[in-house]
Nucleic acid binder design. Sequence first.
DNA 1: TTGTAAGCGTTATCAG
DNA 2: CTGATAACGCTTACAA
Lengths: 334, 334
Amino acid sequence: MATLADVARHAGVAASTVSYVLSGKRSVSQATKDRVRRSIEALNYQPHAGARALASSQAHVLALALPLRGDLYVPVMMEIAIAVTTRARAFGYDVLLLTAAEGSEGIRRVASTARADAVILTDIGLADDRIEAAQNSGVPAVAIGVPAAPAGLDCVDLDFAAAGRLCVEHLTGLGHRVLAFIGEAESVYTRRTGFAERTLRGIRAAAGDADLVHRPCAGSYEAVAATLKKILEERPQTTGLIVQNEAVIPPLMSLLSSHGRAVPDDVSVVALCPDQVAEQTAPRLTSVTIPAAELGHRAVELLVHRMTSGEDGTEGKVRLIPPSLTVRGSTAAR
Amino acid sequence: MATLADVARHAGVAASTVSYVLSGKRSVSQATKDRVRRSIEALNYQPHAGARALASSQAHVLALALPLRGDLYVPVMMEIAIAVTTRARAFGYDVLLLTAAEGSEGIRRVASTARADAVILTDIGLADDRIEAAQNSGVPAVAIGVPAAPAGLDCVDLDFAAAGRLCVEHLTGLGHRVLAFIGEAESVYTRRTGFAERTLRGIRAAAGDADLVHRPCAGSYEAVAATLKKILEERPQTTGLIVQNEAVIPPLMSLLSSHGRAVPDDVSVVALCPDQVAEQTAPRLTSVTIPAAELGHRAVELLVHRMTSGEDGTEGKVRLIPPSLTVRGSTAAR
DNA sequence: TTGTAAGCGTTATCAG
DNA sequence: CTGATAACGCTTACAA
């Protein structure tokens, strides 16, 4: 591989000049600029990432901490990872993976070895020790999700409260009066107060005079069967269903039909899930999407902005993305 | 952050000694070893990744090239990514993500900037230009999947032919004589000869005197409905189903019941899919799993082995992992 | 067994 | 506008 020095020699200039035409950090005459550019082309020069990191103390790498549970939110997580990587590349950054297994230790490691310049945290838990690790390590960090106490941490997330509200309003707007919210598994409410609780709060707030019950539900077929059975037995007049746990969706749809409830003729269903999931059922689901790509993009933008424009004063903000509901075939007027 | 020099000063030894204590590349007396270790502890020293990469020309980073289509094989891909990262960490490597959008350019980039020492390719296509890019760049590469012409490239994959065989043998062993293979989408067969064709070949070879049809099928509800309808109309005696496209599974199960075919009483179903998918239906599916974690682990091991033991002679091997079938509730004797 | 010193390929400061 | 040159923090011959 050709080095900066090779290029400098080939172009008949000093090494520093080559560096400056590349970085643009000082003005260079058009003539030498051109000459250097040609030499770069000719030698197919690519700067050495390690050398650059050492000299500039900037690795141009972002670390992405994967969720604690590998089996949950998989499609959303994948979309976030791709969005983060794509956007990071646009700013000249590469993305490094940190597994849950490494935990907060991984964050300390990439920070103190200068392997990464900043960290993106996902699947934020109620009391997440990775947050503290990031803050103590002094690396810029942004969370995709909102912890219980976001003290000094930048967060981006869907506005789940508004999302819940939107679902209820859509159903009540269609004339539905007896609603059931099939939520995340019970454990999620105890462990990860964040998004699940905010959704529930939004839903309750919007229900108003409508009749609403909340039923936590695990993702297994048996759990869904039990939950649905109970809902239909206890409140046979139910005509509006809101679903949050995306694993619940496939079994729910097939169970509804075996219970003789047609969607959307007998019961309307609206889901909080990625579009991909909403479009794989029959009928396709009216849903509030999880804006995975946008979350990833914004996380990167926040980080890069903070690192370049050296502002350290804007942190600790929680940025909620307004939800948007897409009407598909699973909801209809009562 | 403390540097090597700081540690050396603190321990009263030369910088090189500290380096050697860390790398073990030459023997150091137990006494100084201990002293250095204590200083490292005391100063909480962590080596600078960039400096190390520059001096040793080893980044200790593996690049993982993500699939071309972000929406396919998502759970498998996620599992591979986690397995790769975990195993890489065990060898002291970090993992960098390369998106499909960057394509072969990304591979050239990480290779020529020395950002990564080796590359793992996933979702291998028939004529995949990333393979050539890797080989021209001179980085060690291993493919998870097998291209049409694996010339000189190391590959690891499930033995799909054997997997297909296993499915057929399981069904025929249970007395089923009329079988249908619901495969991947038509486009997959034209574009990615690899695993889909190998599966089909294995299935056909094992069918023997049994009656078998192959029906490609897309993942949408409509496509599954059409495919199943056709199968049941044309060959109502069908009692054995083999499914490869995992997106087909949820709709298929609910469609079977609406057609009045009970699983496994009327029809047995065996799937080629991750365990996670097989366990989310009712009844749970008898399946040949996609050994995602093992694929990831072996890919890393191959790479690390080749890089450390400098052997350049073992490349170009295709390593197929023998399939294993797990009997669950979706298959029974005819 | 240990120390000295020459790189590794950039960036950035200081002159000119 | 451009050239020298000293870092950056580590590895690895080469000496001792």
